[in-house]
Amino acid sequence: MNIQATDIATYNFAYLDEQTKRMIRRAILKGIAIPGYQVPFASREMPMPYGWGTGGVQVTASIIGPDDILKVIDQGADDTTNAVSIRAFFKKVADVAVTTETEKATIIQTRHRIPEAPLHAGQVLVYQVPIPEPLRFLEPRETETRKMHALEEYGLMHVKLYEDIARHGHIATTYAYPVKVEGRYVMDPSPTPKFDNPKMNMSPALQLFGAGREKRIYAVPPFTKVVSLDFEDHPFEIQKFDQPCALCGAEQVYLDEVILDDKGGHMFVCSDTDHCEKRREDGHRGHMAPENESRASPSSSAGPSPRKDGEEEAPTLTPPSPRPLRGEGKGEGQHQTFEKSREAE
């Protein structure tokens, strides 16, 4: 090991002490062996508030090594305050290389998105999870939800989704849309838009989920079946956008609505900033792209999510504007039924 690395070791490489890492590593191993099952772990205090993804940070800290290349995204963007802070944290405590390029990263820590670029074998996607229990909004008692998972009693979850249909004519849940992993455990994919759910299925990358406040770790191994719950007469569908990205012209990507002025001016742009920049570097242009831009950054200060999922409650640490609306284009607000029932707990 080089001298620099040895120096870092003297004040805990990757911040956590070795006993804590061993405990988290054991939990990760069990999570991989039981896909979708939530493994309890003794979450540690981290030098950041819970809302900042301490679960994901602890998972990353336990797996990261000197040869890793880390990417951190928040709602798809590499340059939000949260993403920048977490990246700086690991640069300092683990002296690792960092990148914004999905392709080059060995570990990608994420809040609320899966990158648009396909992941490859050997990559690890670490999700920051606020509420790991998909049944929590149906049943507040941990002992009961544990029993439901043990007995595969997932009927209530289907009833809940069906209530959506009764009320809205379709399944209105658009975030944290529940999935079934390898035909066994119902799992919360974290508050990613359901647009990203299909990317979880048979992904070549390993997916690890860390919930700090709730003290749970779970995993989806590579090449594992992840199926979004649905009904024969109401099959799962991802969000569709009726226009391409205004900057790079991408279609079939997840878009954020960005407010341009107070007169209602707005545009839809890729939520995945790396994907958008790559496409513009390759010469792709959307209808609002500047003529000679080299690196536009409309979402460079993407603010906190308008969703109140309890995960992000550090407004003093996050710049307030401009804040992109979650880009549904249509149907915005309908997912609130699902969210409200969660908040009620």
């Binding site: 890492k21 990760i28 191993l29 991989i32 797996i63 191994p221």
Partner: peptide, 18 residues
């Protein structure tokens, strides 16, 4: 090198388990 050796072995086991 307890810290880095354990990390390297863990990643080998994690990847093998995955």
């Amino acid at each position: 090198n307890p810290v880095f050796d354990a990390q390297a072995v863990f990643r080998a086991v994690m990847d093998a388990m995955a």
